[in-house]
Amino acid sequence: MSSETALATGRRARGLAPFLRSQMRNIAPFLTLIFLSAFFAFASPSFATLDNLGNILTQVSVTGIIAVGLTFVILCAEIDLSIASIANVTGIAVAYFTLQESYVNIANIPLPGAVAIILSILLCALLGLVNALGLTVIGIPSFIMTLAMMQIAAGISALLVRGQIAYKVPDMITTLGSGSVSGIPWIVIVAAIMLLGGHLVLTYTRFGRYVYMVGGNREAAEYSGLNVKLILGAVMVISAVCSGIGGMLGVAHFGSAQQNEFDTYLLDSIAAVVVGGTSLFGGRGGIGNTIVGLFVLGVLNNGLDHVNIDSFLKILIRGLILLAALVINVYAQRLREKAAE
């Protein structure tokens, strides 16, 4: 997308230094990834193995699926704080519509698998639509709107499971979430397909261009006669649906559906997108960045396990890395503006 054109023109019209400066947003996360990988490979012999690569891929899959939609949202300079809650409620819903073992004490409504899946997707799409309407029609800032939705979705989850745990989901979801084909986990394949799909939409479709333009300068997008509200609304729905899919597969992957199961995914998904270099101010970045961000996070989480660090320290280290990424994100924006001035 725009990074390719920036590459082409960048080489032609300016020197190397300004070019590197303007590309800081793409380079820095990549260097971080290489550095972290090298560090852990050096620190632990069990890190740099093919098996462990498989582990990392599996570990970041659910985050990856959720992050696809979130990338769209952040590219539009909005935020979605309800992703983890929506993932949770969708995962619970798909279990709620599935026949559970007799010892599971939930007053659920068993339906055929396909119907359960469709209803669950409709549910998350509906929640996304509520986000969209709140943001565009009423004009509530996305930060607040999705904060409310976070509570609403958590409330629906609570009402559905009432503190209990459900285990069964439709067979198709079980396969996609925890099965594998010729050694490759299905969930990795689904994540890869969704990331690829997101990339193709953002790079090669008209809608994708509009997302970048709305994020780059919303006022200008409106003066160009784009339907900005429609685009923002669509992006919120996409985010919710990606979260829902991540939630359903996640439930199958974890083997159970319960309240608060996805809480860490909110921060992880935002971190993946932002660490990857997608601008919080909108209009810059993309799925490519998100993939790098996912790997940075995956390598970090997984690597810390290999080097046997105090697990409480781990939390702090992750926080610090996130802070560093935010600093780079904001700084990259300034450098770019400077290079362009």
């Binding site: 333009m213 006022e219 200008a220 997008a221 209009g283 770019r336 362009a340």
Partner: peptide, 16 residues
């Protein structure tokens, strides 16, 4: 208000 300063000229022209 009208233009996308971080985007190339052609995208600014073709947007509408």
């Amino acid at each position: 208000d009208m233009l996308f300063h971080q985007e190339p000229v052609y995208k600014n022209i073709s947007i509408s």
